[in-house]
Amino acid sequence: MTETTPDLMLSNAYQNWYRFSRNPTAMIGLVIVVLCVTAAILAPYITPFPDHVGAVTNFRARHLPPSAVNWFGTDNVGRDIFTRVIFGLRISLLLAVVVLGIAIPTGTILGMAAGYFGGWTEIIIMRITDVALAIPPLVMALAVAAVLSPDLLHSMLAIASLWWTWHTRMIYSITRQLRTQEFIEAAETLGASKFHILFREILPNCVSAIAVKTSLDCGFVILVGAALSFLGLGIQPPTPDLGTMVAQGASFLPDFWWESVLPGCAILFLALGFNLLGDGLRDLFDVEDVR
């Protein structure tokens, strides 16, 4: 909107980074997220037993407690849990990326359209949103799993088919407030196209809210996905999945506690990272009402 010299932008970015880096929770969040993403990407190279991802069995090494060799112990067929947890992060992150990759653009465009155009566009979009809010994403995924088959892709699509509503609601309320502001009216008076107003005037003003919500949502999508696979409706074995590991380990509780507790902690850790990061961004951008 305004011309900014590169110099100023640089110092602005630096200022933001400075403020961000002084916020301890945000920094912890960022470190956790970076750590998890890197580990997930490099999983085949950094894990001690990459071949334990498949249907390997090693009955002599079943139910071993955590040790220097098997950091998180071994499961009921003798596979290294630490290796499987790191690979499990991949599925969780993939789920978050796909779901939000669909939900955020959809939600943003629909929210801007509803908020800016008003009239029938607004009524139809927001009413559909209200219906979609009435179905819990987990329940939707369960229903789709019943109709089609329980697998990761179906779950992702089912969750994404509802998740956009939250983004639509958020972007809608921001756009509604922006619509009456003078810089939008000025652009309209100057004859700017609708496209220009939506994507060049309104969208930049939503970016910080979207960033905060994306970060928080990554955590929540991962939790829903984990719940699904805990119920046996996620990716099918032997591919390692954190929720499935908790469910399988649960039958050996409390004696072989590490088999479900440690994968559970991994889910918690990942969701915690995204949540702290989102919280920190919220303070940084000063967007109080993004949840």
């Binding site: 908790v246 409390p254 479900s260 507790v261 702290l276 919280d279």
Partner: peptide, 23 residues
């Protein structure tokens, strides 16, 4: 509040079950 929000409900359920029930 943050820990409550990010603990998977099934995990919390299992932990409570072990702790309050079995232990």
């Amino acid at each position: 509040a943050i820990f409550a929000a990010v603990t998977p409900s099934f995990f919390l359920a299992l932990l409570l079950q072990i702790l309050a029930g079995y232990v």
